[in-house]
Simulated scan of single mutants.
Amino acid sequence: MTLVTDVADMQALARRRVPKMFYDYADTGSWTQSTYRENEAALQRQKLRQRVARNIDNRSIKTTMIGQDVAMPVALAPVGLTGMQHADGEILAAQAAEEFGVPFTLSTMSICSIEDVAEHTKSPFWFQLYVMRDRGFSERLMQRADAAGCSALVLTLDLQVLGQRHRDLKNGLSAPPKPKPLVLADLALKPRWCWNMLRTGRRQFGNIHGHVSGVDDMSSLAEWTN
C-alpha cells in the first residue's frame, strides 16, 4: 500500500506488519466487547457543525489544553504495549506528537519507560496512572513522572477489576512473545517487525520491569495486579 487515506488503510497496514497478539490487543475489548462497540458508535455519531458564508482567510484550529498551546484540540491517548506494536513505539509516538504540536500521554503499561521517553523528547508529556494495590509503587511512579517533567497526570478510574480479554488469552499474549509454535509461525510472517525488535532492548514493561520484583510478562503482571 503506497497511499494511506484513512484509518481503515492504517488498520490494514497494521494487520500486515504487527503480530496478531499485539494487533488484537490494540483492537479489542474485554468480555463481550459491548463497551468497545458502543464507544466506536458514539464517536461515529459526532459531527462537526458546518457554517457557511463566513470569512475563512485566517482559520485556525490552534487552542490550549490545560494551559498548554496545541496545534489542534487532540491528545494522543495512553496505549499499553505501544512498544510492541513497533520497536520503541512510545518514543516514536511522543516525538511525532511533539513535532505536530499536540500532547502525548504515556501509559503505565508502556514498553518504553518514563525515563526513556523523557530522554528522547524535549516537550513535557502527560503520564497515565493505574493506581495499583501496591500504593508504594504508585507513589514511586508519580515521583518518576514528576522528575521526568511530565506536565499532567491522567488517572484511569474505571478499572477496579481487570476485564478478561478473550483474544489475549487465545493469542497467549506476552511481552516479549513466548516461543510457541503458533507465535513463531506468526512472527515469521512479520520480518520487519522482528528485525526492528531485535535492534532495540526495550521489550518488557519499562515502567514496571526492574521496579517490581518478579514482574516480567503479562501473566506475572496480572498476578501482581490482582
Rank of each mutant, 00 (worst) to 15 (best):
P103S: 10
W195T: 11
A222I: 11
V70W: 10
R51N: 04
G163F: 04
Y25I: 02
E115Y: 13
G83D: 09
I66S: 12
D57W: 02
V79N: 03
G83Q: 05
Q33K: 15
Q68C: 06
A222F: 06
R54F: 03
N207F: 03
Y130I: 13
R15N: 05
P179L: 03
A118Y: 10
G210M: 11
F125K: 07
H120K: 15
T5E: 14
L173V: 00
N58M: 00
I61T: 12
K170A: 12
Q11T: 05
V52S: 13
P177Q: 00
R199V: 04
W195E: 15
H209L: 11
D57V: 03
E99Y: 06
V79E: 03
V4E: 04
L162G: 09
M10R: 15
V4S: 10
V18D: 00
F104L: 11
G29N: 06
G80S: 15
S107K: 12
P19R: 04
R15W: 06
N226W: 10
R202S: 03
P179F: 01
T225H: 09
A188P: 00
W193R: 00
L141S: 13
V215P: 01
P124E: 09
Q44I: 01
I111E: 02
E99A: 15
R192K: 15
D24E: 14
R165E: 02
L155D: 04
A145V: 10
E40C: 06
M72D: 07
R192P: 00
S151L: 08
R165N: 06
T28I: 02
N39T: 11
N55W: 01
A42S: 14
T5H: 13
S60M: 04
T63D: 04
T64S: 14
E99I: 07
K20E: 00
G80Y: 02
S30C: 10
V70K: 04
D217Q: 06
P181N: 11
L81R: 03
R51V: 08
K47D: 14
R15C: 04
V154G: 04
K62S: 15
Q50D: 07
G149F: 06
E139N: 11
Q164H: 13
G210N: 10
R203A: 03
F22H: 08
A97I: 06
E223C: 07
Q33V: 07
A71P: 05
T35V: 14
M1R: 11
N207I: 01
D6G: 13
